[in-house]
Computed example of a mutant assay.
Amino acid sequence: MSFGDPNNPYGQQPQQPPQGGPYGQQQGQPGYGYPQGQQAPQGVPPQQGYGYPQQPGQAPGQPQYGAYPQAPGTLQANNGMINVPVLGTVEVASMGRRLGARLIDGAAIGIILGILMAVGLAGAVGIAKDCDPNSVDYTSCMNDASAGFISVMFTWIAVIGAFTLLYEWLMVSLVGATLGKMALGLRVVKENTGQNPGLGAGFIRYIIPIVGAFLCYIGAILVYLSPFFDNSGKLQGWHDRAAGTLVIKKP
């Protein structure tokens, strides 16, 4: 006769809690989750219970590493890498590369506009050379030549504005890069989508330095240097912040 637990007057053994699933099967067994004696339908894997799939070396109940990717626009440990939707982890463009791209664009635009200006000035000078100093119409001829020269200058200024507008605005908006940025492997993207900026954001990004240029061009210089003032690490200038864009190294 076994006395057992002195606090148990009936001498019965304490019942053990049931093991396994709701029908007594152990987790991972073929019939887990089904009434005892029944098997899971063919082709249906046994139920694994709740929680995250456990990986080798992973503590039970912990989520799988990498299950929660960093949010878009998140810098990684200040190493110049940033998460951008669609593109994944990319490198923020350095100011050296951006300056180099700007110089290439300036040289390309300068060559094209220089050719156009030379053609216009040649036409104005040709009119002046045709004026005969001994002719009674000499004064009138020179006035026409001066008016032609002034017309060429204003036309040249208008061409500069239109060409730079179409070049910078349309190429960044639709392609994501100018010729200079293409040459140095840079691209302008929307920070929240990873896509090309589009006409609206591209125009905002273009017009802010132009407005600053009316202040003896000092404002434009400050806009182009403003990425140095960005303490977020993304090197976004004032024009990039206004447009919601980001300059990255092309992946």
Results as ranks from 00 to 15, higher is better:
156 W>I: 06
210 I>Y: 12
156 W>S: 09
158 A>V: 10
6 P>M: 14
183 A>I: 06
36 Q>A: 15
184 L>N: 00
198 G>S: 02
168 E>H: 14
219 G>Y: 06
28 G>K: 05
15 Q>E: 13
105 D>V: 00
41 P>R: 04
163 F>W: 09
7 N>T: 14
208 I>R: 00
54 Q>D: 08
167 Y>T: 07
37 G>M: 09
212 G>Q: 03
58 Q>W: 09
240 D>M: 01
92 V>W: 02
243 A>S: 05
32 Y>W: 15
158 A>W: 03
49 G>E: 10
114 G>W: 00
119 V>E: 13
170 L>A: 15
161 G>C: 07
125 V>H: 05
229 F>D: 10
51 G>Q: 00
117 M>I: 12
72 P>C: 07
121 L>V: 13
88 G>D: 06
119 V>K: 10
45 P>E: 01
48 Q>N: 05
22 P>W: 10
19 Q>V: 10
146 S>I: 12
146 S>D: 14
93 A>F: 01
205 R>I: 02
217 Y>C: 13
219 G>L: 13
194 G>I: 07
188 V>A: 06
25 Q>M: 08
131 C>S: 09
200 G>F: 15
85 P>G: 05
164 T>R: 13
157 I>G: 11
62 Q>S: 12
90 V>H: 08
59 A>W: 09
177 A>E: 00
18 P>M: 10
206 Y>P: 08
54 Q>F: 03
207 I>N: 00
189 V>T: 08
97 R>T: 11
182 M>P: 00
244 G>P: 04
110 G>M: 07
127 I>M: 13
74 T>K: 13
